[in-house]
Amino acid sequence: MVALCLDPLRQIFLSGVYGLLLVLLFVILQAPDVALSMLVVSTVAYPLIVLIAISRTRRERGKE
């Protein structure tokens, strides 16, 4: 589902949800370390860099 959504802005939201789903799966699979790292990464690190990348490409395209 995350891959099928073509608009990057909506995709980050979906990927955050997917990340949380994965965290749940990892906890069920008895892997707390992996769940912790996935949690931090998909809520803090990924949205930051992807949002900035999107806004940078958006703005320059709107400048023309």
């Binding site: 707390p32 370390d33 769940a35 912790l36 790292s37 931090v40 990464v41 803090v44 690190a45 930051l48």
Partner: peptide, 25 residues
């Protein structure tokens, strides 16, 4: 805390490092 107690409870340097960076942002 997560980074320091990595040897005792779930966690460790990798997870704690990202969390610390997130806090500073």
């Amino acid at each position: 805390w997560v980074a320091a107690f990595g040897l005792v409870t779930p966690g460790g340097g990798f997870q704690g490092g990202v969390a610390i960076a997130g806090g500073i942002v």
